[in-house]
Simulated scan of single mutants.
Amino acid sequence: MSTAFDDVLAANEKYVRSFGLAGLQPVAARGLALVTCMDSRIEPLDMLGLKPGDAKILRNAGARVTDDTLRTLVLAVYLLGVNRVMVLPHTRCKMASVASDDEVHDLIAAKYGVDTRSLEFHTDRDQIGALFHDLERIRHHPLLPNDLAVMGALYDVDSGRVTPLDL
């Protein structure tokens, strides 16, 4: 029986034959948590010189620091060896190219007939302003340590360059 997932399951069989990560510890070996977008043009390990086990990578639409991101960062800091956080949105992001969540809701409703208004998409055309807001959410979260190193940067999907914006 063929499924929509045959290609990825077949690829996993090949992966298993050369699997080399057994025994890797669950902590972030380099103490880094990276909050970035789910965009497939982003290769978080390669672009920052990391290897598996070096960092905890949190991905969502727009690289936004949501309540769930904060929950995950609290766990990462206290249980998984994280002592620094980089928030890294990217150029040409769909979540920064629309005027509002309402525009996204309207696009989905018009094209697919699905009402998504129960969701918050965290769109913001002021991508840098949104980044600074999100950095402050981390820096002032009551459950995160005051000395947690936090920085923001922007990834350019056309050049691969990471440009620090807030240290």
Rank of each mutant, 00 (worst) to 15 (best):
L79T: 12
A61P: 01
P44L: 06
P44Q: 02
V98I: 13
N12S: 01
L70A: 11
Y155M: 04
L79S: 13
R139K: 05
V74G: 09
H140Y: 03
D102L: 03
D6C: 05
D166Q: 15
V162Q: 02
G53M: 09
D68G: 14
T91Y: 07
A61I: 14
L79R: 11
E103G: 05
G81P: 07
E43A: 11
D101R: 08
D126K: 04
H140W: 01
D124T: 06
D7K: 12
V82Y: 09
A4C: 06
A28M: 10
A10N: 10
S159L: 09
Y155I: 03
C93V: 07
H133K: 12
L58W: 03
L24Y: 01
E136W: 01
V157Q: 12
P89E: 08
E120D: 14
T36S: 03
V35G: 10
L21H: 00
N12P: 02
R71C: 15
G62V: 13
T91H: 08
I108Q: 11
D54Y: 11
D124H: 11
N60I: 05
P164R: 00
T36Q: 05
R84V: 07
V98F: 09
D54W: 10
M151K: 12
N12W: 00
R59Q: 06
T66Q: 09
I108G: 12
Y15Q: 00
E103F: 06
N146E: 15
R71E: 14
I42G: 00
S100W: 12
M86D: 07
T123M: 08
R84E: 15
D101E: 08
L80G: 03
V27G: 09
A63W: 01
C37F: 07
D126N: 14
Y78R: 09
A61H: 12
R125I: 10
V16H: 00
G23S: 00
G23L: 01
R161D: 11
R84Q: 11
M47H: 06
L143N: 13
V77E: 09
H141T: 08
L70Y: 10
D54E: 10
D7W: 02
R64Q: 12
A10W: 00
G31P: 10
I138N: 04
V104W: 06
N146Y: 13
L165H: 01
L50V: 05
A130T: 07
F5K: 02
A110S: 14
D115A: 04
K111H: 14
R92P: 00
G152S: 03
L88T: 02
C37S: 02
A76F: 11
D115H: 12
K94F: 11
E43C: 06
F121H: 08
D166G: 03
G31M: 07
T163K: 05
L73M: 06
G20H: 00
M47Q: 12
D134P: 03
T36D: 05
V150W: 08
G20S: 02
S2W: 11
A63Q: 02
P142I: 04
A61K: 11
T69K: 06
K111Q: 14
I128W: 01
E136P: 09
R139W: 12
Q25S: 15
A11K: 00
T163C: 04
D158H: 13
K111Y: 10
A130K: 10
D102V: 03
